[in-house]
């Protein structure tokens, strides 16, 4: 039978293979893997239909998140890009702030890099739990705003937010430092066991701080 592609029998491509092709494909692969991991977490968490912030629930979610990302190879910039993938709502249509934030926190805590910068200023939504359980020796700088529970259960790491945060910043942190350049919400430092929270401007309300120190515009304001 006549081969309809006969004219291309001797085709030799003149196109160069650039490193860009490989880099972009690898990045897409990472985003795909991260999305798949997030999907698994959401699947696990949504078994009970509604997601509440409960201590055990958070711990469980974090554990699952740490488990699902074990096989994924990524770097700090991929985490930032994945935040935008979540935010776009097109590639992943189910952004649930709680699990999404815990997932990002798990990614940060397990990244190879010690210093992570997330430029999140152009995100339409904010993520909760950024900096959750950030261990000693690691730093996370969020350029933009963060949601609730920023730096909660902090374990010695250093969290900086160049914008504002929501409620429960530093809740249950044991050690480390949280710097919030602008405002933060209610219950700041609730159940805080140690470490420091520095807030540049207004604090809407302090929580019941057990230990540690909270500063507002350079002045200590808590524990009361």
């Amino acid at each position: 039978m006549f081969n309809p592609f006969e004219d291309f029998k001797d085709f030799l491509s003149k196109a160069k293979n650039l490193p860009l092709d490989r880099l972009a494909a690898a990045h897409d692969q990472i985003m795909g893997d991260l999305a798949a991991g997030y999907g698994k977490l959401v699947e696990q968490e949504l078994k009970s239909l509604v997601w509440f912030v409960e201590h055990n629930r958070v711990i469980e979610a974090y554990k699952t998140a740490t488990e699902v990302i074990k096989e994924v190879s990524y770097d700090a910039h991929s985490i930032e890009d994945f935040c935008y993938v979540l935010d776009s709502g097109t590639d992943i249509p189910y952004l649930i702030s709680g699990p999404a934030g815990i997932y990002i926190a798990a990614l940060c805590n397990n990244a190879d890099e010690d210093a992570i910068v997330l430029r999140l200023g152009e995100m339409k939504r904010t993520l909760h739990f950024l900096g959750y359980r950030l261990p000693y020796g690691k730093s996370l700088r969020v350029e933009g705003d963060a949601g609730n529970f920023t730096g909660s259960a902090l374990q010695g790491g250093e969290v900086t937010v160049t914008g504002s945060t929501g409620d429960w910043a530093g809740a249950g942190m044991t050690e480390g430092k949280i710097s919030i350049h602008k405002h933060c919400g209610r219950n700041t430092g609730e159940w805080m066991q140690g470490g420091e929270i520095w807030v540049g401007s207004r604090i809407r309300g302090l929580g019941r701080v057990a230990s540690g120190q909270i500063y507002q515009a350079g002045e200590p304001v808590g524990p009361a």
Binding site: A24, H27, D28, E80, D81, E122
Partner: peptide, 21 residues
């Protein structure tokens, strides 16, 4: 340039997202 290297510049359908990155 770390943030810039993995952007799919030649994929026209993704130009707006690529420009954002």
């Amino acid at each position: 340039v770390k943030r810039l290297v993995a952007i799919p510049y030649l994929d026209k359908r993704r130009w707006l997202a690529s420009l954002t990155r």
